[in-house]
Amino acid sequence: MGQFDKWTENITRKLASSSSRRGFFTKVGKLAIGSAVLPTLPIARAAAQEGKKEKVRGIEPVTTGIENDPGDITACDYWRYCGIDGNLCSCCGGSHNTCPPGTEMSQIAWVGTCRNPSDNRNYIISYNDCCGGPTCENCFCVNSQSDRPVTRPQSNNDIIWCFGTESQAYTCTVGIVLGVALDD
């Protein structure tokens, strides 16, 4: 037993004489700071964002499958949604241009233009609200291209356009392509 004590004491003393407490804390500190800094690097942040986006929305990307119509219709950055302010019907049982079952499309709408990245042309988009169902906030987006102040109500996206429908309760919004815009 005495020999074991002596052996342990020797090892401990050797270790103590060849290392410093400050050195140990420096290493621990470096590790702690490193762990904190790593996620702030651009690559790490982008990766985290990508994962987070899917997890929060819980909806797989959906495309129209139509040529010249790129993008995820359940994402705020889908090209047709450049002026949308509201909930996407494509996340609520409808699609980019159809209302969810049980809701009714507003007779009137506000009309703007969006650039299609596949051909770089501007298209005329009609933003119609779907009305009469429960509010669906699975994908809420606030984009503002072509949006004008409420003093120009015909071009304002803050207005709930549930008019001419049985119910004025707002559910979600669709973006319907009306045609190719002309050059100004």
Binding site: T64, I124, V177, L178
Partner: peptide
């Protein structure tokens, strides 16, 4: 969808202005 993309090709300035400013 196809029609809306196709018909837009022959859009006149008048109809375009109608769509953008009136038909909403």
């Amino acid at each position: 969808f196809a029609n809306s993309f196709a018909s837009a090709e022959g859009l006149t300035r008048e109809r375009y202005n109608w769509m953008l400013n009136c038909q909403g």
